[in-house]
């Protein structure tokens, strides 16, 4: 591994992201939808009582009764109205899966474009002719996707916090969002999950003939797996802090093993013969 090469590839790729409209739209639009519009619309509807007739009320009440006795249950039961309970549950436990679509989708779009883009612009040939080892190349590409994705996710999270707390402060007489588990998920689990998505995307890109094929493969293989994983986030938010830290650690180890595997599996001659014509 050569860190100067890693750094050079990462900087170059990050500069390239700003010139890709498709990627830029994702970077701006997704945070706007999932970080601002979804929470704002839901909270406003809940506050005005428009969700009161929906099945969600029943669902929340059922959930609360099934909760094991403890801090969360006590807190929920202590709220004066169902509206309070719905908003609290939504902000702290149900917003997670929506919110995590921001890093996942962005990581997928940027990283799929990264290697296939090199091929389509015929720059992959130049890269493979240079003395960069593939591990450095892949790590550089991983970092170039990781940094903007996480930066946008954190920015979205801050926006989301302002929206949620701004809209609910008067109702709860205090801040309800985020809780500690959210912060661990944001700063520890999400980065690890993002890195894993990127590595999957690199694997797919290295085997795709073009951007369309990579996108299709990404959509068919990666997205369902990730969707399945993040659908469990609501559940994760109920877990203990230690368990969440442990999950992040496991993801980190998978990432390290995967990076070694990605570099080993994608040998230069294989990549060249498959991708350069």
């Amino acid at each position: 591994m050569n860190w100067r090469h890693v750094n050079a590839v990462a900087k170059k790729d990050m500069k390239g992201i700003t010139s890709n409209i498709q990627v830029m739209i994702g970077l701006i639009l997704l945070p706007l939808i999932f970080g601002v519009i979804v929470p704002a619309v839901f909270i406003i509807l809940a506050k005005t009582g428009n969700v009161a007739n929906m099945n969600i009320v029943e669902l929340i009440e059922k959930l609360i009764t099934q909760f094991p006795a403890g801090e969360i249950k006590d807190k929920l039961v202590s709220f004066p109205t169902t509206q309070h309970q719905i908003i609290y549950m939504f902000a702290n436990y149900m917003l997670g899966p929506f919110f995590l679509l921001i890093p996942v989708m962005n990581a997928l779009m940027i990283s799929l474009n990264s290697l296939v883009g090199e091929k389509e612009r015929r720059t992959l040939e130049s890269l493979l002719f240079s003395p960069i080892d593939l591990k450095s190349l892949f790590l550089g590409k991983l970092i170039a996707t990781f940094i903007p994705t996480i930066a946008v996710t954190i920015a979205s999270f801050l926006l989301c916090t302002i929206i949620v707390d701004g809209l609910t402060y008067s109702m709860f007489d205090g801040l309800i969002f985020p809780n500690w588990n959210w912060i661990i998920i944001l700063l520890w689990v999400t980065p690890m999950l993002t890195a894993l998505v990127i590595q999957f995307s690199i694997m797919i890109s290295a085997r795709s003939k073009g951007f369309q094929e990579a996108q299709q493969l990404g959509g068919v293989i990666v997205l369902p797996i990730i969707a399945l994983a993040i659908s469990q986030i609501t559940g994760l938010l109920f877990l203990s802090t230690q368990l969440l830290l442990g999950i992040g650690l496991v993801l980190l180890m998978i990432n390290i093993l995967m990076l070694k595997w990605v570099a080993k599996f994608n040998q230069r001659h294989y990549l060249f013969e498959r991708q350069v014509h």
Partner: peptide, 19 residues
């Protein structure tokens, strides 16, 4: 094999780092 989104000097800087 050049990066069209980068300037001429940026392309040379990038490849000089790889070499």
């Amino acid at each position: 094999g050049l990066y069209h989104e980068l300037s001429g000097v940026e392309n040379l800087r990038f490849f000089s780092k790889l070499y």
